[in-house]
């Protein structure tokens, strides 16, 4: 088996007494979509932030492209990007200006061409010259996704990329991501609260609960293991168990 693009080993993050991520290990293979599933506060976003070097782990290691993130941050982050419903981009800049700044930050060449490409791919021609503050939430999601894929990452981290979007836009973004993953052989870490979306998008799923991995496998394997009908029932079962604790 080829070396995984992302190798996470015994990753732990404590904030004082609170353990946000508790000794988790997982890999992401080239071209794989790994779903990170779990209730609020399970540690999904903290894990993503650690993979982006925004939060320092308390223990454990993160290797991406075979390199240690703590030592090779700059080299690694040139080829990693992320998108999230919860981030924003400078409101006083237009869509194109924001994309230009990102392109320069990642050292892209032929910037205008790269912007043309991504704007076309995500059907953003109409909003290209629009101020970011005037974008709808769906348009903002497309912008953050555009900034992520324009840099041609090998690893893409998506933190609830379709949360609060209407079904039509959600469907378009999912279709785009599936096609883009296939054409670029991209590795994706994907979080969502939408179980159907997780089943549809992920090759493999990791179920996090209170910072620990409680289940891992394909959606079907997880459903069978917990003796439920679908992933949503597994989610509800685990989430309710957690509330009883």
């Amino acid at each position: 088996m080829a070396q995984p693009l992302v190798e996470v080993r015994n990753l732990t993050k404590r904030f004082g007494d609170f353990v946000a991520v508790d000794n988790i290990s997982f890999d992401i293979q080239e071209g794989e979509i790994l779903g990170l599933l779990g209730p609020n506060g399970a540690g999904k976003t903290t894990t993503i932030h650690m993979l982006l070097g925004l939060i320092t782990p308390t223990a454990g290691s993160i290797r991406i492209f075979g390199l240690d993130l703590a030592e090779h941050r700059e080299t690694i982050l040139k080829q990693v990007n992320f998108s999230s419903t919860y981030i924003s981009m400078p409101y006083s800049l237009t869509v194109e200006e924001n994309l230009r700044v990102i392109a320069r930050l990642y050292g892209l060449s032929n910037i205008t061409q790269q912007i043309d490409d991504v704007v076309k791919k995500l059907d953003m021609q109409e909003i290209r010259g629009k101020l970011t503050r005037k974008l709808s939430s769906g348009q903002m999601s497309r912008l953050t996704l555009a900034k992520a894929i324009m840099t041609r990452p090998k690893v893409l981290l998506l933190d609830e990329p379709t949360a609060s979007l209407d079904p039509d836009i959600t469907q378009k973004i999912k279709a785009f991501l599936k096609e883009y993953r296939r054409s670029e052989n991209l590795s994706i870490l994907y979080t969502s609260h939408n179980m159907r979306e997780m089943e549809e998008m992920s090759d493999r799923i990791i179920f996090l609960q209170r910072g620990s991995i409680v289940a891992e496998g394909t959606a079907q394997q997880i459903v069978e293991r917990f003796g439920q009908r679908d992933l949503e029932e597994v989610f509800l079962k685990l989430a309710r168990e957690e509330r009883r604790i």
């Binding site: 070097g53 925004l54 982050l77 040139k78 930050l105 990642y106």
Partner: peptide, 9 residues
């Protein structure tokens, strides 16, 4: 925008 900046190189 701090996340966009410091998650970049």
């Amino acid at each position: 925008n701090l996340m966009n900046l410091f998650a970049s190189p």
